[in-house]
Design a protein around this nucleic acid. Structure first.
Length: 524
RNA sequence: GGCGCAUUCGUCUAGCGGCCUAGGACGUCACCCUUUCAAGGUGAAGAUCACGGGUUCGAAUCCCGUAUGCGUCACCA
């Protein structure tokens, strides 16, 4: 296939057989509809799924969906020392919670089972052996301690560190092999020529093999487990991964991976090194940055769809204006070629803005469903809310939907609908330009005229209260604020009339009396 | 330090040689709306396109160099 695609700005050409496979030709008009891609997310079960990885997962998932291909999940549990109990479940449940389901992998299975590397050891061992047979890998009997000692000596002599680990001084490989001593397998890295690699985002990169001065990498560890270099390459090939998306922190070790593919004689996948998601300090966003776990964001009440939409825009954009896109639109529009090469800072404020927009656009019933768990946790409704409770929630929600930015804010925004304010702070009850005595007076008068109101709805309350203010020659805040505090216990709340209407006449009057009583006793 | 990548408003980004006296969004500020807080509306400030050379009639866009930042140098992934 001689067709070439220009990656603008990078000067690189990607062969069509890599990125776009078959180009459909119809009546001489070429369409670049991509062929179905197989992508994968291959986490090691060592912790939570965090925002940075999620962005890379998202891109992989979107590309698979966009091309009508498959997205796989593979667990890279080859480091027994770093294994964390429960981490795999954490990872899978986070992915499910955010809505990025995989087509093959744990739970769902698939044609390449098992999808857990610790259960594929024989495959890696066989592949390592084949590389040894080809003469591009070798067994090394030097222990880590011996290598460290040797390197220390060399350093003292001003010599560079060891790059090759066979036939080392003082180590008789043949004797150790005969004695059946433990070994590991290392790849013989090229030391001449260049490793020329192609990345969809950055174009062509040339590594000078001699200048690299990288130690021969371990393929198979002494414990018989493979390293990432071997396991990931073997699995990506065996599982038919067409596009390898990974964070650009993998760039430096890329020559190793590239050479492993070459050593096996396999066709390279399309490599896509995506830019990193950075913390506000401009450094790699990691678990160390604090609250970056995906489940934590969801628990705080960020909507999965808002997180996805926002994250899609770090390192990728559709055009110069469009920001809000549904999942379906993202799938339709996502294009690997529009991924930019430089890292982007994760801006929590902007995510919050996205969340607010999504929250406001939610249908009332949907919002009620999502908010219910937060109200349950706060004890405002039961853990298994009844129909009646849900109906009440749905009734209150319109009053706060415009204001809420995070689902977890729901309890503090809505609690007064469920329970009476617990005690009144006179400082809040008395408006800025008023005094306690006058406020008690106003509250009493308001209550009296409210008692006479028959039609208890928002427009009627609006009229009555405004008339009341005018008749007494008061300022609006002098009247409205005490009522607001009496009803909600707070100086900020939903609209006063709507709140009163929903609360009902009895509750409204009772709370006004209670507040007035509390204030008069406090000011005595 | 070696190797590598990156570099447009504080931040996310648009930009594919003339449409750019650089567009959008978040944030900030002001005003409007208004019963509080939000939301919404209008507007403003904010980028000598890291810097220096080239190429070109013309460069944010192409080339070279420099600087800075980041990544990485494990029997971790």
């Amino acid at each position: 296939m001689a067709l070439l695609f220009k990656r603008e700005g990078s000067g690189a050409y990607i062969t069509a057989s890599n990125g776009y496979g078959i180009i459909a030709t119809q009546g001489g008009i070429m369409s670049d509809r991509p062929t179905p891609a197989r992508t994968r997310f291959a986490p090691s079960p060592t912790g939570y799924l965090h925002i940075g990885s999620l962005r890379t997962v998202l891109f992989s998932w979107l590309w698979a969906r966009h091309t009508g291909g498959q997205f796989l999940l593979r667990i890279e549990d080859t480091d027994r020392k770093r294994f964390v109990e429960g981490a795999e479940e954490q990872l899978t449940s986070s992915l499910q919670a955010i809505g990025l389901m995989w087509d093959e992998g744990p739970i769902v299975g698939g044609p390449h089972t098992p999808y857990k590397q610790s259960e594929r050891l024989d495959i890696y061992q066989a592949h390592a052996t084949s590389l040894i047979d080809k003469g591009v890998a070798y067994r090394s009997y030097a222990t880590a301690e011996e290598i460290a000692a040797l390197n220390a000596e060399r350093e003292a002599r001003g010599e560079p560190k060891l790059l090759v680990f066979r036939n080392l001084p003082g180590i008789d490989d043949a004797a150790r092999e005969a004695a059946g001593e433990p070994y590991n397998v290392r790849l013989s890295l090229k030391t001449t020529g260049k490793t020329i690699v192609h990345d969809l985002v950055r174009g062509q990169i040339e590594f000078d093999n001699a200048a690299l001065k990288m130690p021969d990498p371990v393929l198979l560890k002494t414990d018989g487990f493979p390293t990432y270099a071997l396991a990931a390459m073997v699995d990506d090939h065996l599982m038919g991964i067409t596009h390898v998306l990974r964070a650009d922190e993998w760039l430096p070790t890329w020559p190793i991976h590239h050479q492993i593919y070459e050593a096996f004689g396999w066709e390279q996948p399309v490599w896509v090194h995506v830019p990193q998601v950075l913390g506000s300090d401009g450094k790699k966003l990691s678990k160390r940055h604090g609250d970056t776990s995906v489940t934590e964001y969801i628990e705080l009440g960020f909507l999965p769809e808002a997180i996805i939409n926002y994250l899609a825009l770090i390192g990728w954009s559709y055009d110069d204006k469009t920001e809000f896109m549904t999942l379906a639109e993202l799938i339709e529009r996502f294009d690997l070629n529009r991924i930019r090469p430089s890292g982007g800072v994760f801006d929590r404020d902007k995510l919050l803005h996205f969340n607010g927009v999504y929250l406001r656009n939610l249908a009332a019933a949907d919002l009620a469903q999502r908010i219910a768990p937060y109200l349950s946790k706060a004890g405002l409704i039961s853990a298994e809310p009844s129909e009646a409770e849900l109906a009440k929630v749905a009734e209150y929600l319109p009053l706060v939907q415009e204001r809420i930015k995070l689902l977890s804010e729901a309890p503090e925004l809505l609690d007064f609908f469920f329970v009476d304010p617990q005690g009144y702070d006179p400082a809040l009850l008395v408006p800025k330009k008023g005094d306690p005595a006058q406020t008690v007076e106003v509250l009493g008068q308001v209550k009296a005229s409210l008692e006479a109101l028959d039609t208890w709805d928002s427009p009627s309350l609006d009229k009555l209260l405004h008339d009341f203010v005018n008749q007494l020659g008061l300022k609006i805040p002098q009247v409205f604020m005490p009522i607001r505090v009496a009803l909600t216990g707070r100086t900020t709340s939903p609209g006063l009339f709507e709140t009163m209407a929903v609360l009902g006449k009895a509750v409204t009057l009772a709370r006004i009396s209670t507040a007035a009583a509390a204030l008069s006793s406090a000011s005595v």
